[in-house]
Amino acid sequence: MSDQTTQKGTVLKGRNTLQAHKKKEAVAAWLFSAPALTLLLVFLIVPFILAFYFSLTNQRLIPNPNLPTRIIGLTNYIRLLSDSTFHRAILNNFYFAGVVVPVQTSFALGLAMLVNKKLKFKNLFRTIYFSPVVTAMVVVAIVWGFLFNPTDRGFINRLLQSITFGNVQPLEWLHDPKLALPAIMILSIWQGVGFQMIIYLAGLQDIPNELYESARVDGANSWQQFFNVTIPQLRNTTIFVAISTTILAFKLFTQVWVLTQGGPMESTMTTMVLLYRQGFRQLRVGYASAIAVIFFLIVLAVSLIQKLIMKEERAVS
């Protein structure tokens, strides 16, 4: 009888310690995530809530005490819907992302495969391809601005002329409404590709060699190995690269601001440039906040759709 009681007591005590342990773990978890959470709260969540609130008001950048900020409901949103510059900005964003994401991702994979080979100086090549990433975008933009010189003295125009034996007339690049956005795409891809390359490189090195060996035993050639081993094995890497590139593409601002400020004829206008112009140049913080909120929803939707289409394989323990 007494034996039974003691046993029961031990079980109970065991359950208690387990619960206490779990509780302790939870406290530690919260403590450890506290710094990150605080920063997220202060720099992301609070600003977003503020932006949402401002978007319902006519908040000015230079506040006037005689004309206090008023809540104006959905006026900013209604006006955005009929703002042709905003439409153009959104379209440009999709155009930019639509070109840059696939091209940059494929280039990155190609480069990663190259520098993953047993080449001489392979670390040198890796460094060279990665170096644009560590260069500030403003610097990259200014340098490319010189390269895109519209006269026949421009580097890129000279290059085009010499490889086509003078059949291409000097292009006006950043001054031509049709070429300005493609020019910015080119420099953005050049600047960003190294980062994705590194991620792909890590992904490539994670693929077990046995898979290639058995593929070779089965008689697969290099192309078949690439399509049936490499690509499927890089699935999760590709998803990560595609989504992060998409979000970066939508945030397009710096290079445009430095080189064209949205011109010529709004051909390089992007949502971020419009937001900055409305908020800081035209002093309409309320309207700019509405742009921010809509932009957030669009990017969120795009990433969710992407995730749905490319279902990530989660490791199940």
């Binding site: 950048l61 230079i62 506040p63 800081f280 140049r281 002093l283 913080v285």
Partner: peptide, 10 residues
């Protein structure tokens, strides 16, 4: 410059 001054006003 103008943007920074405006922001400082706010």
């Amino acid at each position: 410059y103008n943007e920074q001054v405006s922001a400082a006003t706010l």
